[in-house]
Simulated scan of single mutants.
Amino acid sequence: METILLDTDRTFTTLIQAVSSFDEQQLNETPFSGSWTAGQVAQHLILANTGFIEVMQGPVKDADREPGQQLGQIRADFLNFETKMKSPDFILPLPIDYSKQRQLGTLENIKSSLMNLIETMELDKICLTFELPGYGFLTRFEAIYFVNYHSQRHTYQLNNIYHHLSEE
């Protein structure tokens, strides 16, 4: 329990620091052709993570397998920064200007919700609301780590965008 709380706290603290490093203009500036803006990356995480919180709060069933069975594959897939991935349409960010303060506030709320979920819910239950393509139905434990690894992947992307914009 303590490890998952620390991992989640560390992941979101680092993510929030990465978003905080951009000024309002940089947040909405396209760093290079074909890239999202930092604001779009943050919005993608907001959409995905909010969705996963809803999934974890939805209907569940007892697990018929180890609660962390999928962790190794999820970690390997999402923390391989050489692999390009395509976002599902339902969590694609709109190509608009985003408010840094609003996004930071939402990310803080997501962090708080996740920490509360970890402390109050049975993490070994399988979530039935959403089947993650390639992985199937996740336990709450796996879903939290999916959120963490997915957020870490995009924090890496945010840091690259910041680096690119700072070099101009």
Rank of each mutant, 00 (worst) to 15 (best):
M1T: 10
T3Y: 12
L5G: 02
T8G: 08
D9R: 13
T11P: 08
T11D: 07
F12E: 07
F12T: 01
I16L: 07
V19T: 09
T30V: 15
T30M: 06
F32T: 15
F32S: 14
S33P: 07
W36D: 03
A42M: 05
A42R: 08
L45A: 01
V55R: 00
P59Y: 05
K61C: 06
A63S: 13
A63H: 14
R65Q: 04
Q69C: 10
G72N: 10
Q73W: 01
Q73I: 04
M85H: 04
K86A: 04
K86R: 14
S87V: 07
D89H: 01
F90N: 13
L92P: 05
L92W: 12
D97I: 11
D97F: 10
L107Q: 11
L107K: 05
S112M: 11
S113W: 02
T120L: 02
L123D: 08
D124L: 12
I126Q: 09
L132I: 12
G134P: 09
Y135G: 14
R140H: 07
I144T: 15
Y145G: 06
V147D: 04
N148E: 09
N148S: 14
Y149M: 05
Y149N: 02
S151A: 12
S151C: 07
T155M: 07
I161C: 14
I161S: 13
Y162P: 14
H164E: 01
H164N: 08
L165V: 09
S166A: 05
E168G: 04
